[in-house]
Nucleic acid binder design. Structure first.
Lengths: 360, 360
DNA sequence: CTGAAAGCGCTTACAG
DNA sequence: CTGAAAGCGCTTACAG
């Protein structure tokens, strides 16, 4: 922190080496501060010799504009906020990293907050972002995002909603087609002979979860087969093992488990092993979200692969468009995800098939 | 962005709903702006009824101080910058997440930048942080951090250096004992019978790499055995496969490979499989940095487990101490890491042992 | 083109 | 205790 040096007079040498300000530059160059600003921002053309003097002074002092003052005065800031539920999920980590890179390349900065899918935390974190008057916000909305979205709408800040749609709000959106992805995945499991499916989710209320459930039901309906599709909600990560153990030892246990993210995938693999079940012989496993380790585990993990980098890039473009101003039309981009089947998905065990046959 | 409404007169109703300022609150409460500030900050005690009026106005308008203005005026900001090389490495991701949480709990915010271990990028990213006049900086220094460190030292910003020591600078530091960890790991490999070790690093120049190499050499020396310990530098992640393939098919191929982070661990496992070698039968594998999937892969991955959360908490404490001011003594904290052997490490293959015996 | 001045939204001595 | 005013470091109309 700078020492409290009150009443320093013009021309007086600096006792403490402080960060130079535009005033220091102006004094050294012998021009008005406005002129320095004009040179640096190119707002108004500035003549040859004066211009040189300013640039020399800037170089000599190592002057860099104070972004706080600049943003305050300009009423806009080159910082964008990005809000994701957590980064322990591979997909969100990748999204944040992609953003950080794209933003930096464009001369922007990222303030990064975690919402933990908790409505109150989310609202608080976004409120903080707004207090910094960030130039824009990228939001992966949580389970009950209405207060957050209302606040953003009122603030007039450019926003792009990512990953989970926020119907009823006028924000630009970049999502991927969860319903189609889940439908596709379910169809393929049914085609392999699976008739008892279990979908493990962190929060049932999430829009994406709803969409996935819809996709699953659609696939079941279309198949014409008698398929049971259960949902298991498990908000606390620590409980996953117990909950899954119960489900997998029940009489009519599922032959295929679909989990909503890579952390759950890791948990499910552990649980299956702990129960001395074999994957995929006893139970197939498929996860949304492709982690770095999907192909390293055995059996290799089947996944729904999200187009992370495309999502980040698209969201950035939309945000920039808004930040540049103009009351342009709302854009909703929906990308496609890809189902990648690996060793963790196979035909269901014989006895399950036989049981069903006998029953039929 | 706020509409350009110039020359609004006092008392005039607002045409556009803007973010309320302290002036709006003061007007509504019928007090001076300084009084509002005093109520909110508790700088000066403010009487009963006036105080109520101010709080009511704040609530009614939903007023929240503009942090840009506040930080500019106070000459300090509740934002801390955190610089790590990347987040694709589990250890750094965990570090950042831990920080974000601790900071938020303390009412602070985090600006997060990625340096990619590139000196020029690092300098630029930290320069940006400084232009925002962040209250403090947490830095995981890259390969040649001198320019960055000089800049930080000049800026007078509180700094804590994490993970990699910055000798010769007066910053507080939180590191863990890489040398001891590597010595321990190497000793255990040698005890198992390994005589040809390969250490794969991203950058040889990194201080931590140097320390690890020292630890390895110490262990070799102490063992008294004839052990070859090679270093393989692989800056580009994409090249890892090829480089490892060469090393692992050489006549005197290593029987144990140690890699410097979890991304390399994943790459090494892939490479070993691609070569149709078996781990640990043909080659043992041990990694610095414990990823989420360490126990999921087969063989389960042996690791050096860093005390991530302790590091984050400790660094935060040191940073807060500096930010609160006071010219306190420099602190250098060194934590211990733990070697966790799992299935990926075993005795070397028989022929390697025999070859050595014959030779002896 | 240039300088002096107002103002962004706050905090903080300084008189009363 | 309270209000009026100066000032943080910038940008931006506004006269000359």
């Amino acid at each position: 922190m700078v020492g409290r040096e009150k009443g320093r007079r013009a021309g007086e040498p600096l006792a403490v080496r402080r960060t130079p300000t535009i005033t220091d530059v102006a004094r050294l160059a012998g021009v008005a501060v406005g002129t320095v600003s004009n040179v640096l921002n190119g707002t108004v053309p500035v003549g040859g010799e004066r211009r040189e003097r300013v640039l020399a002074a800037v170089a000599q002092l190592g002057y860099r504009p104070n972004m706080l003052a600049q943003s305050l005065r300009r009423r806009r800031s080159p910082v964008v906020g990005i809000c994701v539920p957590r980064t322990s999920v591979a997909y969100f980590a990748a999204l944040v990293e992609a953003f950080e890179e794209i933003a930096s390349d464009g001369g922007y900065h990222v303030m990064h907050v975690l919402t933990h899918d908790a409505p109150e935390l989310e609202r608080q974190r976004v409120a903080s972002l707004l207090r910094y008057h960030v130039g824009g916000v990228v939001l992966v909305p949580g389970a009950e995002p209405a207060p957050t979205l209302d606040m953003l709408a009122q603030s007039d800040t450019p926003v792009v909603v990512v990953d989970r749609t926020a119907r009823g709000y006028g924000f630009d959106e970049v999502t991927f087609d969860n319903r189609a992805a889940m439908r596709d995945a379910t169809e393929r499991l049914i085609a392999l002979g699976h008739r008892r499916l279990l979908f493990v989710v962190r929060r049932r209320k999430l829009v994406v979860t709803q969409q996935r459930i819809q996709g699953m039901r659609e696939a079941v309906r279309r198949s014409g087969a008698e398929v049971s599709a259960e949902i298991l909600e498990c908000a606390a990560e620590g409980e996953l093992g117990t909950r899954l153990a119960l489900a997998l030892t029940a009489a009519a246990r599922p032959t295929a488990v679909i989990v909503s993210n890579s952390t759950f995938a890791a948990g499910a693999m552990r649980a299956i092993r702990a129960l001395r079940l074999r994957c995929p012989d006893d139970v197939s496993l498929l996860a949304f979200d492709e982690p770095q380790w999907a192909e390293l585990v055995s059996p290799s993990l089947s996944v729904v692969r999200q187009p992370t980098h495309d999502i980040a890039r698209m969201a950035w473009e939309l945000l920039m468009r808004r930040m540049r101003g103009g009351a342009e039309e709302r854009q909703q981009v929906e990308l496609k995800a890809q189902v990648v089947l690996r060793d963790s998905v196979a035909r269901p065990p014989l006895q399950a098939r036989n049981a069903r046959r006998r029953k039929a």
